[in-house]
Structures are given as C-alpha cells and as structure tokens.
C-alpha cells in the first residue's frame, strides 16, 4: 500500500514532521478556536434537539404540542416489542445495502468512464451530476411522470417493445415499489459519488499505471492493485457518510409512496414520522428514533475502528 500511494503518505510524512518540528504552543489553542464555531453550531442544532428528543422518549406525549407524564422505559419496551418496528428496521437494512451496492457500482463505472480521454470530457463531467443538483421534489415529479400509466413513457416503451404484456404499476406492489424507490434514490445520488471518486482517481499518479502496464498487468489487476488502494481514504469517508445519509433518507420515499403499498417501503425514518404524526404517539416515535440514532452511532464507531485507512490513523 505504501508503494501504491507514495505521494499521499509522503506528503503526510512531511506534514507530520513539519508539524512536529514547528508546532508552536499557540497552534493547539488556535486549532481549537478554529474548530469551535462549527462544533458550537452543530451542538446547537443537533445536540440540543437530540437531548430534547431523548427526554421526550421517556414521557407519554401523544399529539405534538400536548403534555406528558414520565413513563420510564415504557416507550422503549413498546417499540422494541413491536413487529412494525423490526419490519421497518429490516427494510432499512435492505434499503441501505441495496443503495450502497447500486450506487457504488454505478459511481465506479461512471468515474471510470469519465476518467477516459474523449472530446467533450469537460462537459460530460459537469452535466453528469445533473440529477443531484435538482430538488427531491423535482426528482419525484420526474419519476412519477416517467413511470405512470397515464402517459408515462416507460410503460409505453415496455408494452410497445413487447417486454411486458401490460403496463406495470411500479408503485403498485411491494417488490416493485421497493425496487423503484431504491433505483430512483440511487439515480439521484450516484453522480455525486462518481465525481468524488473521479477526483480520488485523479490523485493517483499516472506513472503507477504506466509502470504496471510495462510489467504486463491487466486492466483488472491495475484497478485492483493501484486504483482501489489509492481510493482507500475516499472510500472510507464516502462509505461512512453515504450509509448514514442513505439510511436517513425520508423525503424521496415519503413523496413517492408514503411508505406503501401496504408498508412495503416503510423504512425506519418513515416509520418514525408516521408514528409521530399519524399515529399520534410522539414519545414512542422519539424512542424509535433514539434507538435508530444509537444503532447508527454504534455502526459509525465500529466502522471507523475497523475500516479506517492506516494513513488516517497515523495522522490522528
């Protein structure tokens, strides 16, 4: 690995040495001062609401805005004992894994295509990201329009080309709705991932590939032994952030299916929203979201322990 990314580690070393030799005492203080505004901002907007939510989860508030009594762990035992919660949990797992696989695959393919030299490369690199820069609501309109049965082009093509005998109700059955929503969400996000991967790939020196070619390495070997190690740091963060983002996706699912049909697309965030605002069990919903938050936190800690690239640790 050290061989594969000499510049990165090399740069890190110089930096580290430089830091060690010339780290005036004031730097540590300055460092904290510089990070402080952001940390305070996040604390105000995440930590405080988080504490309120935890408090709420020990009460028995029903409708938002009404009062409640302290009930201890009752909400947690109700949530953890509810089939609906665990079903939503399972759907969230499927959702996150399917999205991760699909997006990673699409993003890698896209990045590898865009890495080639061709005329119009600059334009293609900019506009491939189009699906990410439009609001979720637009994404929803586009796909409801494309996949509908009244005037939808996809169904028209399917039937005309004889692929299916009849129009498909993409949001009409559990499996098709799940698949459609996963595809739409991936369509929305893979370009951003692709562009970031592309940036990562660009950081790998071309000489490495040339040397490997001279040694007779196949394209696959080059990808596996040069590209992948070179992308380790990028993949680490994208993996973590991407999964956290994707498990918390709510709006696209809600706007497309409202969690249906028959709860087939009710992932945990949808379940939480539904419990709070349609079942009028605000505290129970808070308990469910605290559980989700804890699971994600555990995941994040575990992930950073296990997956952290060595270079990152060195600098820590």
């Amino acid at each position: 690995m050290t061989n594969a990314t000499p510049t990165t580690t090399g740069r890190a070393r110089t930096g580290l040495l430089a830091g060690r030799f010339r780290r005036p005492a004031g730097d540590t203080l300055l460092g904290y001062l510089l990070v402080a505004p952001l940390i305070l901002w996040l604390a105000g907007t995440i930590l405080y609401p988080l504490l309120s939510a935890i408090r709420l989860s020990f009460l028995d508030v029903g409708i938002i805005g009404t009062g409640g009594q302290f009930v201890g762990l009752e909400n947690y035992s109700k949530v953890l004992g509810s089939d609906n919660f665990w079903e939503a949990f399972g759907r969230s797992l499927v959702w996150v894994v399917a999205n991760a696989v699909l997006q990673t695959l699409a993003a890698f393919i896209t990045a590898l295509i865009l890495k080639q030299r061709f005329r119009g490369q600059g334009l293609a690199r900019v506009w491939v990201i189009l699906s990410w820069i439009v609001p979720t609501v637009v994404v929803v309109i586009i796909w409801r329009w494309l996949l509908g049965t009244s005037g939808g082009i996809v169904n028209y093509l399917l039937v005309t080309l004889g692929i299916t005998p009849q129009p498909v109700g993409f949001f009409g059955t559990g499996p098709t709705a799940r698949t459609s929503v996963i595809f739409i969400n991936s369509w929305r996000w893979f370009p951003l991932m692709a562009v970031i991967l592309l940036a990562g790939m660009q950081s790998i020196p071309e000489e490495l590939y040339e040397a490997a070619s001279v040694d007779g390495a196949s394209a696959w070997q080059r990808f596996w032994h040069i590209t992948m190690p070179g992308l380790q740091a990028v993949l680490f963060v994208m993996g973590l952030v991407g999964m956290l983002w994707s498990i918390n996706v709510f709006d696209i699912i809600w706007l497309l299916t409202r969690g249906g049909p028959s709860a087939a697309t009710t992932t945990l965030p949808v379940f939480i929203y539904d419990t709070a605002f349609f079942k009028y069990r605000l505290s129970r919903s808070a308990a469910a979201s605290v559980v989700l938050g804890l699971v994600l936190l555990a995941f994040a800690v575990l992930y950073t322990r296990v997956m952290a690239p060595r270079a990152e640790e060195e600098q820590g």
């Binding site: 996949l147 129009p167 109700g169 949001f171 299916t257 049909p261």
Partner: peptide, 16 residues
C-alpha cells in the same frame, strides 16, 4: 383498475 392505482390520490384518478 390500473396497476398503479395503489399509489393514487384524487389527482391520479382524475388524470386517468
């Protein structure tokens, strides 16, 4: 009924 009717609100029915 059309196969996408599990996703309908009033508007889709009218459009149909």
């Amino acid at each position: 009924s059309p196969p996408d009717s599990p996703n309908w609100t009033w508007g889709e029915a009218e459009a149909c």
